[in-house]
Write a protein that binds this DNA or RNA. Structure first.
Lengths: 247, 247
DNA sequence: CGCTAGGTTGAGCGGACTCAACGACGGTGG
DNA sequence: CCACCGTCGTTGAGTCCGCTCAACCTAGCG
């Protein structure tokens, strides 16, 4: 953070354009969305299970995650979100929240009323398609996490998560050289992968011992990318990062 | 199947209308889609991992599932699909398949070219929204399966799956009185929940012994719905079955 | 300086797995 | 018509990955 640019909805335009170019009119329509920008503290819920939100949340700065609390205090994390993401875009068409969304770090988010998004997507099918696509990639990542929890060992699952996060962050310019900020606790990792914090700790130690990664002070460094991807059989197809040709 | 009606795209119209009413024009546009209806045998792949399909598949009769094969022959099933579903709707906007789709029973499916669907959704934003919503419910179910694999015991996970399938089938008129056809093997259940067929077998025996269910010849009967839902802490919110008020 | 959240380590346990055998059933072909 | 075979379901015995419980360490922070 040398001289932080003022966070704005531009990040959304850039994200959409990384998939398909926008016309001037489309770009102007997005810039014309009425939004409310708010700074948030860490561990602050943005929307909660059973809420009926009337707005979506665009991450401008910081990390967030979607999760659900079960009886007996168990927690399942569904996804991690970084700047450019709209983690609750589904609320545009599913009026009840079936999970919660909360910040992991200090964050800046833009709230965009459903009203404006409904108008926007009705007027511009290509923008609607781009948003739709975004939720589809989300679902693809859910599927891959299912593979992790159902069919991968703890070590493979953790390695896989680290590979995935690196590519996601690299795609939005938040990571390079196999180093990135990963401001989440071992308990968060555990709740994302269906493990316990104790076991995550042991596996991390193992990965460190093998010289594959170091994870310190919220920064992850991958020392041997090839070996790490091999360990977990990582195939990035599901992230659908390649540019789609314009429709 | 006393006097089977000829399967047709009507099933799709009915499904869309269960969410929001369609105008005559919209209905006619859907009926005007060029489709190809095909009967399929059981265990037949419809689309495969890494394919780049140019059409979507509407289930008219029979069951299908989405899955992925891993190295060492492991398999993860992501979802089960019944008549009215479009299991590969995501291929409309994600051009590479990141998983496969195959029949579980003899089935009849309608293939709908992407071309026609793109036109349809561009012309009718409300139809686009309905399709989009459908993929969002899909994603919500993925999330719930993640909860099952990450944070539920085998018994809870299996009970939860049975509750889910009942409500999904009931919603399309394929189940009532807590009885329904479940034409899948114990290995399928295992691959869906991240378990082994052996363990699924033992847990089913346990559920049978408790008098909660009987599962025989592909038919599941729930004897004590209340108890079954209590056992797995079932909350159907995530299925988003309630009618949505017209946009 | 003390509190708290997060990380680390040990010891013992158990749910689900592995391997293996066998039974039930339906389809198929000689 | 029945022997054969493959798929699916069932059961037993032994193992292990990841869990539980618990203690302790470390660093940031009010």
């Amino acid at each position: 953070m040398t001289s932080a640019p003022k966070p704005s909805i531009d990040i959304l335009i850039r994200k959409l354009e990384s998939i398909a170019p926008l016309s001037d009119e489309e770009r102007r329509a997005i810039e014309g969305l009425s939004i409310m920008i708010r700074p948030l503290k860490p561990d602050q819920d943005i929307v909660r299970d059973y809420d009926r939100p009337s707005q979506c949340c665009l991450m401008l700065e910081g990390w967030a995650c979607r999760y659900k609390l079960l009886s007996q205090g168990k927690r399942q994390i569904f996804s991690f979100h970084v700047p450019g993401d709209i983690p609750d875009l589904q609320s545009l068409h599913l009026n009840v929240m079936d999970h919660s969304l909360c910040t992991l770090t200090p964050a800046t988010v833009a709230f965009i009323p459903h009203h404006g998004l409904h108008e926007l997507t009705a007027r511009f099918p290509r923008i609607a398609a781009a948003f739709w696509r975004d939720t589809l990639v989300d679902a693809a990542i859910f599927r891959e996490w299912m593979v992790g929890m159902g069919r991968r060992s703890a070590e493979e699952a953790i390695a896989h998560l680290f590979c995935e996060m690196y590519l996601k962050l690299q795609a939005v310019g938040l990571a390079q050289n196999h180093i990135y900020r990963l401001p989440i606790t071992q308990s968060d990792v555990a709740d994302a992968l269906g493990l316990t914090n104790v076991h995550v700790n042991r596996v991390l130690k193992e990965l460190r011992t093998k010289g594959l990664i170091t994870l310190m002070g919220g920064t992850l460094q991958v020392h041997d990318w090839t070996e790490l991807t091999k360990l977990c059989d990582f195939d990035p197809t599901y992230l659908h990062l390649e540019q789609q040709r314009a429709a």
